[in-house]
Design a protein around this nucleic acid. Structure first.
Lengths: 368, 368
DNA sequence: GCTGGTTTGGGAAACGCTTTCCAGATTCCG
DNA sequence: CGGAATCTGGAAAGCGTTTCCCAAACCAGC
């Protein structure tokens, strides 16, 4: 029976002493070998590695953490794991963190202060090395709570001006300008915007980026065409219904996030207005789902991968003493437009054709 | 300046000695108080708690884990966090685990053996108290790897027959029978089924449940009407297209999961066949998204909450020495039909009415 | 062959906590 | 009132690492 076989049969309670005994060295030497400290004679190191494999030694992370003071755990705080944007972010973040030798402790606030408080307490107990707050919200008390404890922190868009805080600066303007210009290039002049909840800083920023891009092109947006949603499918649907009821209809709608845009698609599906033939719709975020909507959604991509990569690096910069970018406070994130099929020329500027006959479902207007 | 204020300003490096000194007791007493061991004089305990709050003491979890041998971390292995079914499961699992004083370490296999191996190694290093494998797949090597280490394990549907292994037995038949009977009650006779990948045990089980339920009613299913998908939206679309191309069209399609059903909806959207007027569609899982499809999907609910609750309890049963259900190997999970709007009478059996009129009728009926 | 400097490897002290052991104090019962 | 039983809190022994410090071993040079 091979030694490997033996190691597999036992519970993982073999410790550094077992290895030391088997390799006939001290535990200090084993520790040095395992941690790749170069002052160990190569021959001896080989003997130690052999012993490690033979007894199936796995270093105990909690003991390590206890003595080193670093848990190698990164906290990641999001709003809700059931919001489709976040799983993608979580996955990227996890991949990258693991690649750097960290574990991730995920927590969602669910917009509940009590829950958030307990979450922070747990992260504190587990002694996380740093926390990334990617809620895209403000949640002042959350920020306050975290800042007090002094570990490295990463926020999105904005954060308190402290040495341990780093901020991911998303360039919303870039992508939104591209969206506006894309629509303008198609011939749209009458463009509406459905924002997120404006108490959320990111929502206000996105809306401002829209207004600025429109102004740049000399296009005016009636007040009634900027309507506030809540970044949910339901709110998007409601907002679109409001737009439909408000007299003159825009030829295009830009949404502050993709779920809102999906809600808009649903609202329009209940009317005679077809997307993109009669009205164009643009989302924001580029969640996976947008590829599968009917029609696939033109949207501004904010890359989860970039976001996650910047978050992990910024955290490492705060944690690891000699990280090259240790002093960098702001980390830029780019955005750009992804054109799919929910945008087209404004209605009336093209002959009717295509699969309209097939796709037309209900000819009746919604009764309201 | 209040003591609370002081505690907030310092890094969390206050330890049990600080509390002991402040409360003028021994560290043993502090430990007993914090761990709620009842042999301590209430007055003294109060003094200790006061000191705890004053200095802002947070017990160090790693030190605790080191000495107690229990990490209070539960491993949760899923397939992919970006599959909409899993975030809901993760959230429920996390909530319940936290409520029981555990932390959750999540990992997704992404169907990649190398990744899975590293995942298990990490769980081992972090010394998880137990692992729930909720991939709904088989992944024999994963199972093998985990079993070797002897910690409590929970699987779905089936698992090796070992003392430390517990199995969540999902009663697929129950919900699928309800689905078939619901369709039959509406008048459907010609029902197709789109399965998951059949090498996945759960997919085969679901398909068998369908065949059995059909047989019970004396309904025959042509071989061409049982088509294999891959539990993805794309595969559901492809499978429906296959069904459309296969000559005679069924009046209803039951799918092995919701993503497949959404794919079916997409495929049909590109044809003249309307759902549910001309063809009924039933999903399985009841993910959040099904409420928002067009039309909202009738589906068999497999409650994430029940699943998560059973997983956490089964794990606890394996971990905590005197858990009441310590000996229970199988944990039943029920399923049942949720009727929404994607099912209706078979085409040709009803005069053409407005959508609303039909819907109202459908909503009146019941399944037994 | 001895001195002085440089490697190497080992012993032992942390890290922060739980838990056991034990001594002293108190209560109880005959 | 004495001995047993119960209770309380302090001291100390780990838990599995890393790391500091020192001793042994080695090498070169005189």
């Amino acid at each position: 029976m091979s030694p490997r076989k033996i190691s597999q049969q036992r519970r993982a309670n073999v410790n550094i002493h077992d290895v030391a005994r088997r390799a006939r060295v001290s535990i200090a030497t084993v520790s040095r070998v395992v941690n790749r400290i170069s002052t160990v004679d190569p021959e001896l190191a080989k003997r130690v590695w052999k012993a490690v494999n033979e007894v199936g030694y796995v270093p105990n992370t909690q003991a390590r953490a206890l003595v080193s003071g670093r848990s190698h755990i990164l906290g990641l705080i999001i709003s809700e794991i059931t919001n489709p944007f976040f799983p993608e972010l979580v996955q990227e973040f996890d991949n990258l963190a693991v690649a750097q030798g960290y574990e991730v402790m995920i927590g969602s606030t669910s917009y509940d202060p009590a829950r958030t408080e307990s979450l922070i307490a747990r992260m504190l107990q587990r002694n996380v090395d740093g926390v990334a707050v990617m809620t895209f919200g403000i949640e002042e008390d959350l920020v306050q709570k975290l800042v007090e404890h002094g570990f490295p922190l990463v926020f999105v868009d904005a954060g308190p001006d402290l040495p341990n805080v780093r901020v991911l600066k998303v360039n919303y303007g870039e992508g939104i300008r591209q969206a506006v210009q894309h629509l303008a290039a198609l011939g749209h002049r009458r463009i509406a915007f459905i924002s997120g909840p404006l108490e959320m800083r990111t929502a206000a920023t996105r809306r401002d980026a829209f207004s600025r891009s429109m102004a740049e092109l000399g296009l005016v947006v009636p007040a009634a065409w900027i309507v506030e949603g809540r970044h949910t499918m339901e709110s998007g649907k409601a907002a679109m219904e409001k737009l439909l009821a408000a007299g003159e209809l825009p030829t295009a709608v830009i949404c502050s996030n993709d779920m809102t845009a999906i809600g808009v698609l649903h609202a329009l599906d209940e009317t005679t207005h077809r997307v993109p033939k009669e009205i164009s719709v643009v989302g924001f975020d580029d969640i996976h789902l947008t590829q599968f909507t009917l029609p696939p959604l033109t949207t501004v991509q904010m890359s989860c991968h970039d976001l996650a990569a910047a978050a992990v690096e910024a955290l490492r910069a705060g944690i690891e003493p000699d990280h090259p970018k240790a002093a960098q406070r702001e980390w830029p994130i780019r955005t750009h437009l992804v054109v799919r099929r929910s945008t087209n020329f404004p209605r009336g500027t093209l002959p009717a054709l295509g699969k309209a006959g097939v796709r037309d479902k209900v000819e009746r207007r919604r009764v309201d």
